[in-house]
Amino acid sequence: MIDDSLVQPGDAVHPGKPVIVDRYGPGARINHWITATSLILLALSGLALFHPSLFFLTALFGGGQVTRTIHPWIGVVLFISFFVFFFQLWRANLWVRNDFVWLSRFTDIIKQNEDRLPELGKYNAGQKFIFWSMTGLILVLIVSGIGIWDQYFGEATAIETKRYAMLVHAIAAVLIICVFILHVYAGIWTRGTLRAMTRGSVTGGWAWRHHRKWLRALASQRKAGPAE
């Protein structure tokens, strides 16, 4: 049996110089980029209505009326694509004790003292934080968003409810944009990560350095797995 929290369907190692480790299949990658595109478009169209100094961003969408019309629909796309992703990844993102140990050595993470950090599965605590905060915030955003989607649900909620929904939507949006920035930056700072979402694979060295437990599990799975 493959341990779901450690190794996911499609993960595999290929020997060579360097070792290549499959991390995301084509479906997951396409879905990831749909989610990413939606989130960026939502941030741009949402920011345009959030602060007057950013209203000019409505021009990207063809004006204020169009921005107002499509923003909620992009939200629906994001919601669906993210939750397809969610059900593929959630097990590997369950919190384990080592995540606390890893987090408590925050300065070692920043100083890149990888040898002082515990061995990790497919995701570290930072990635899990991104995953769960995205999950929570997207739920808050879709619910509050429907509450203020007046074109179709205008009569469904009272004005006082809409006021709270508006405030909650704005705050959640600010937070998700910060989480998004963190996500993108972590992917750039940790060199060799981006290719997981482009080519779908990482090098063995990357897996050794950042997700050694995952790499060990994959390597031993090769040993125990069916003959190739």
Binding site: V19, T190, R191, G204, G205, R209, A219, K223
Partner: peptide, 24 residues
Amino acid sequence: KPNRVSEEDEEHAEKLVERNGRGA
């Protein structure tokens, strides 16, 4: 300083996979 994967990391990975491959 960006967090780069080192040569040693790659070698460790290669050895690990090789070891397991031999075992299989």
